[in-house]
């Protein structure tokens, strides 16, 4: 049994213009100790999918259907009080903005001990000792000194390491990282990614990494789910995905990477962009949502929506005309 099993997840938000569906029937699993990348453009539904797991979407306006099973337990129907015991203890989240995600009124050490005392019922003394260990675990130098500092005294990269320390304080089975390196300097990003890799190796934590950066995916993920307009359009192990992308959208994303820049007619290296825009989430016709931007679109692409089909071992793609690899 997979650690996390998401089946036919659909998430809509009530707005003045009716219900907007951000996620439409997404299914995938996460194995223990696996790093799964959820990738796609802004607004493709990757964050909404991930935040539905610990139920962090605004409850008043969210319409959710489908199943989310953690370790066999159905999370979508759990009472809020039980969900609260799962958040931070079994499923932890690291957000995108490290500088604003820490409480400015308390020291970082206090904020780590707070989670430990809430979920692990540690004594104040034991929690403090553990906080120092955790800061050391996420690679913060001089943790004995840093525990007593306030968030404003730390750099962005340091804050993100503290956020990770808080997230892994109770050894969660699943860590959700929402664009954890996007707000950081490129030079700091690699270090933070190393922390995630190290945590997986040492603690066996499964990680869902939400990112739009395929460089990050190639660097750290075991498997990737590519999302477009609220649907999973391709999922595969990372080596397989980069070697044999089947969906034209995945291929387009890879061609848009700086490393894949091609030499143009003027002799300068140019990035290949995907033409067009993401479709509006308000309309959802029975057709491939990517066809207006797709180089290999044909007549049948607008006749019906391509289902997610198996293209070799553990490789799924939703396309009638998948990439020209054997």
């Amino acid at each position: 049994m997979s650690l996390l099993e998401i089946t036919d997840l659909t998430v809509g938000f009530d707005t003045e213009d009716g219900t907007v569906h951000a996620v439409k029937g997404v299914s995938f699993g996460v194995e223990r100790g696996e790093i799964l990348a959820l990738c796609g453009e802004s607004g493709c539904g990757k964050s909404v999918t991930a935040m539905a797991v610990p139920r962090l979407l605004p409850s008043a306006t969210t319409r959710l259907s489908g199943s989310i099973k953690l370790d066999g337990r159905e999370l979508t129907v759990l009472p809020e009080a039980e969900m609260r015991r799962i958040r931070g203890k079994e499923v932890a989240v690291v957000f995108q903005e490290p500088m604003t995600s820490l409480n400015p009124s308390f020291t970082v050490g206090y904020q780590i001990t707070e989670v430990l005392r809430r979920h692990e019922r540690l004594s104040a003394r034991a929690a403090r000792a553990r906080a120092v260990e955790l800061l050391e675990l996420v690679g913060i130098p001089a943790p004995h000194r840093r525990v007593g500092e306030y968030p404003h005294q730390l750099s962005g990269g340091m804050c993100q390491r503290v956020m990770i320390a808080i997230a892994v304080a109770c050894s969660p089975q699943l860590l959700i990282a929402d664009e954890p390196t996007t707000a950081l300097d490129v030079t700091i990003q690699a270090g933070v990614l190393d922390v995630f890799r190290d945590l997986r190796d040492r603690l066996g934590t499964a990680i869902i990494l939400i990112t739009h950066d395929l460089g990050v995916v190639a660097d750290i993920a075991d498997r990737a789910v590519v999302m477009y307009a609220g649907r999973a359009v391709e999922q595969a192990p990372v080596e397989e995905l980069f070697a044999r992308p089947r969906h034209p959208y995945s291929l387009g994303l890879m061609r848009a990477l700086p490393a894949a820049a091609v030499v143009g007619p003027d002799g300068r290296r140019r990035l290949t962009e995907i033409p067009g825009m993401v479709p509006s989430p308000l309309s959802d016709p029975q057709e491939c949502a990517f066809h207006p931007r797709c180089p290999s679109a044909q007549a049948d692409c607008t006749a019906s929506r391509p289902p997610l089909e198996r293209h070799g071992d553990a490789h799924l793609a939703a396309c009638f005309h998948p990439g020209g690899h054997p």
Partner: peptide, 14 residues
């Protein structure tokens, strides 16, 4: 609406 409140909710705070 601050991020640190969202983060606290995600950590299971009451």
């Amino acid at each position: 609406e601050m991020d640190y409140v969202s983060a606290a909710i995600a950590d299971g705070a009451t």
